[in-house]
Design a binder for these strands. Structure first.
Lengths: 154, 154
DNA sequence: AGCTAATTTGCAAGTATTGCTAACTAACAA
DNA sequence: TTGTTAGTTAGCAATACTTGCAAATTAGCT
């Protein structure tokens, strides 16, 4: 996604207000490689702006996604993740610690078989497995993080 | 997944009971290429066995998935889908009518970049776009089905 | 027919997300 | 600086999907 400064510009042009809530979120999302969920972003945002509403976080994330500034990532664990990296890439999810990493694949897969003729607008590839750290610790502890990131929220 | 007859055998061996509910579901799932959600299966099952509980459908689907008889497919539309086709394949979701089709891709993508070293256990590829029928009707109606299959439930 | 562990059910509860609306405020104008 | 107002925020209710729980039922065996 664009930098907070650029986003400010874009918002102004669209007659959208530059509220402190939005500015905070712009900053938190910028270059964020953690693939946060609305909830986890809310937690971080709350520290810097106590009282900010989870509803606002959802709202803003939704707007940014609609504007093409964020990519929605669904790794199948319930909550949607938001990724500011709009470049073509896919995701690796560690089934041990829940961390999500950007990955590049040799080439975006092409559909074959079954009649073809589909008009493909988007391809999502999600790998599940163990990340480097969790893979190593297999014979020691069952993962370096006690809980999956996802569970953190509750 | 195995045929209803084979499943019966497998269940017996595991001391699991062959209830009419299970038998019905075995039959409904066998060779089912519709990628049904628990709800949609429940609707169909209810016609043949009024009174069957949605809870039972969830229960049974969960058991079969755990036994490796069904594949869980998440296309990011809220409900999980169940696919008896355990062969290696991926999915195409029509963003117009919501239908899901099995697709084969030239080769399962391999991870490159970012340190690599991941232990990959599963790769899920989901294509989003327009299916043949919806692609055709683009200039006529907004899709051949009024509602997305998903919405059907509510 | 009787026993019992497995199963089914209904309902409450949990999680993630959106709809609605009243209160609030950024941005612009006077 | 103050006023105006359209755009925003925040809180809560409501929805959608799924699971936990406990009581009632039943398949499969003796």
């Amino acid at each position: 996604m664009h930098s907070p400064t650029q986003l400010a510009q874009i918002f102004r042009e669209k007659q959208l207000k530059l509220t402190p809530q939005r500015q905070l979120l712009f900053g938190l999302l910028h270059e964020n490689k953690a693939h946060p969920s609305a909830e986890s972003l809310f937690e971080v945002a709350s520290k810097q702006m106590p009282g900010i509403s989870l509803r606002t976080v959802y709202q803003t994330l939704g707007e940014l996604a609609e504007m093409g500034e964020l990519q929605l990532v669904d790794v199948g664990d319930g909550a949607k993740r938001f990724d500011p990296n709009m470049g073509e890439h896919h995701h690796f999810v560690c089934e041990s610690c829940g961390s999500i990493h950007d990955v590049e694949i040799s080439s975006t897969p092409k559909i074959r078989g079954e009649g073809a003729g589909y008009e493909v607008n988007d391809v999502g590839v999600v790998f599940h497995g163990k990340c480097t750290r969790c893979g190593e610790s297999t014979k020691r502890s069952p993962g370096h993080q006690a809980k999956k990131q996802v569970a953190k929220t509750k």
